[in-house]
Computed example of a mutant assay.
Amino acid sequence: MTGPGEVRCMLMRGGTSKGAYFLAGDLPADPGLRDGLLLRIMGSPDPRQIDGLGGAHPLTSKVAVISRSDDPEVDVDYLFLQVAVDSPDVTDRQNCGNILAGVGPFAVERGLVAARDGVTSVRIRMRNTGELAVATFPTPGGRVDYTGSVEISGVPGAAAPVLIEFPAGDRPLLPTGNVRDTVAGTSVTCVDNGMPTVLIAARALNVTGYEDPVALEDDPVLADRLHGIRLEAGRLMGLGDVEGTTVPKLSLLAQPRNGGAVMTRTFIPVRCHTSIGVLGAASVAAGLRVPGSVGEGIARLPARGDRIRVEHPTGFLDIDTSVDPGSGRTPPVARRTAVVRTARKIFDGSVFPRSAGTPPQLFGGNDGSAPR
């Protein structure tokens, strides 16, 4: 039981992200009231998120809203919400495959799914897009076990594996219908294998693709070019005006340096990811398997098997992806996508949001600066 002003919450690391997980019934049903509450819980808008759970970065300002599904073929529904750090915005325009890694364990922890003695699989509907995923993880004795020996880049230590499989969806892999498009004067490949993503050769933007993320973020010329590409690509991909949204993502491609298939630098959409999102990596991997994409001549694809190693600033992410390349009359289709991630429960209890009457400007300057 929670008291007045308290909201039941579980903070979890999912993959290389961290977020607050809620049962849908513990939040207001009205989206406006829900989003206002989440802003106060996370401490936004404030560049430091000093008065909430957020970690002052998009990767640590995320929310999962979970409910039992009314679909007999699905166990739980998962709504992902990205809470902006320094603006009063909450968006559901994208999925998050990292936060997805914690959804199955959370569903078991909250009693939405009965665990088996050994391993448990949870069928998840991602409400942001309607797509499905199946998460499988260890549950010895019918309890979630977060300990294990699986290491993933960007996360210290090791944890139990969470295998996430994505059944083939019915959305086109190439949303524009073309293997390549010229967008804002730049050759790109637009892909959607779970995350709308624009693939760009780093050299086409006069960078190497090996730079530190902060250096790329601080390049005003690059920022202007990426902004123009994103706006035009968004319209071509059927996403409309993406000025105020977090999709599509932009992934710069360079030749691999550490034995993988490709090196990436991904913008989400303005900050440069310190690693890469699961669904973004799934789209990159699928795009590399399409003959004639911008990755051709850059990527070094494995001779056998479905696994593609996507390198990123802090390591790599392995994605199993098979693509039917299609023919002149039939478009390419993603047949299978799977990834191993880890997740960990950090705390479970009640969060106390700041008062609804507290003016946001008290927690950050109007110009985005920290208060003096």
Rank of each mutant, 00 (worst) to 15 (best):
M237W: 02
A356K: 06
L163T: 14
A204D: 10
R34S: 01
S293P: 07
G154N: 12
P161E: 08
G194K: 10
D219I: 07
T337H: 14
S187F: 00
R354P: 04
T139H: 03
Y146D: 13
A29L: 05
S187Q: 12
N98R: 14
V207C: 08
T139G: 02
A338P: 08
I200R: 01
I308G: 00
M126A: 14
L288T: 03
L23F: 00
G19L: 15
L11R: 04
F166R: 10
A158V: 14
V144E: 00
G365H: 07
L239R: 01
A115R: 11
T358G: 00
T274W: 10
D75M: 05
V155T: 14
E243D: 00
A201K: 08
R335Y: 14
K18Q: 09
A202W: 11
V83T: 07
G97H: 10
G148C: 11
T16K: 06
F22W: 05
P140S: 13
V278R: 01
T60S: 02
P45I: 06
V162Q: 03
V294P: 00
R230G: 04
R123G: 02
G234I: 08
L252H: 11
V323E: 03
S17W: 09
A84L: 14
A201E: 06
A303K: 09
K345I: 07
D117G: 02
N98L: 12
R265D: 05
S327F: 14
V134G: 09
R8H: 10
